Simulated assay, not measured.
Amino acid sequence: MRWIMLCVCGFGLVACDMVPQWAGGDRPATTVAQPVDDAGSGSETDGDTPLDDDTELEASEPELSTGTLGRTVASLGNAAEPGLWLKTPLVSAEQAGRVYYPDTNRTVDVTLIPIDGPDTAGSRLSLAAMQALGAPLTGLPEVDVFAG
């Protein structure tokens, strides 16, 4: 009986590291250390990787928006998706921002998430953000969006 309990406990500990993301198992990505060539012999692969050339890294980073981004019509986004976020075509990269609802004079800090579409297209606001703003869940409130 002891062996069975040890096996069950062992499998339970192994399974703790396999929690799916939807159940709160969002774990930070692990990195593997790359060996460093201390001899400085200059192998053939020097400079061929994107991490070796800073200009390639800078070119691949999206530009973050700043200041007032504009006014958008916000509908209720996926209610099962937690957090304070606004999916909007007003940004080209995920970043921190604020949303202001003039009807209730409330502001909430959100994560701005880019979506495809013209700047005049509508946006999707999280359930928690709609509630924090005091906006009607079944309506289409107009909100002002700010970056930063």
Rank of each mutant, 00 (worst) to 15 (best):
Y101A: 07
T72L: 03
D37Y: 04
G77K: 10
S75R: 10
A147L: 09
I4D: 15
D38S: 14
L6E: 13
C16Y: 11
P89W: 12
L137G: 10
D53E: 14
V145R: 03
G67A: 03
E58N: 10
V73E: 13
P136G: 08
S41W: 14
A80D: 02
E63Q: 00
I113W: 04
G25V: 05
A96W: 02
M18R: 08
Y101H: 10
A29F: 03
D109Q: 12
L51K: 00
M130P: 02
E63M: 12
L51N: 12
Q95M: 09
G25A: 11
L137H: 12
L137K: 05
L57V: 04
R124H: 14
G139F: 07
N78E: 06
L137P: 13
F146K: 07
T72R: 08
E94A: 14
E58F: 09
R98H: 00
I4N: 15
A96F: 09
Q131Y: 00
P82A: 02
L90W: 11
V145A: 10
E81C: 04
N78D: 08
A147C: 11
Q34E: 07
T107E: 15
L57A: 06
G70A: 01
T111H: 15
L69R: 06
G67E: 01
C16F: 13
P20E: 00
D37P: 07
G134I: 04
N78G: 05
P141T: 10
E44V: 02
P89I: 10
S92L: 12
A132G: 01
G42K: 06
V73N: 06
T111N: 15
D119I: 14
V143K: 09
S123F: 05
P82I: 01
P28G: 00
E142A: 08
D109H: 06
L57D: 04
D54L: 14
I115L: 13
R98I: 01
A23V: 00
G24D: 05
L112E: 11
T49K: 15
N105V: 04
P102D: 06
A29P: 08
E44G: 09
P82V: 01
L64H: 10
A147M: 11
D144Q: 15
R2V: 02
L86S: 08
L127M: 02
A128D: 06
L125W: 03
D103S: 01
F146G: 05
P114Y: 07
P20R: 03
V14F: 14
Y100F: 09
E94V: 14
L76H: 05
T30P: 05
P20D: 03
P102T: 00
L57N: 05
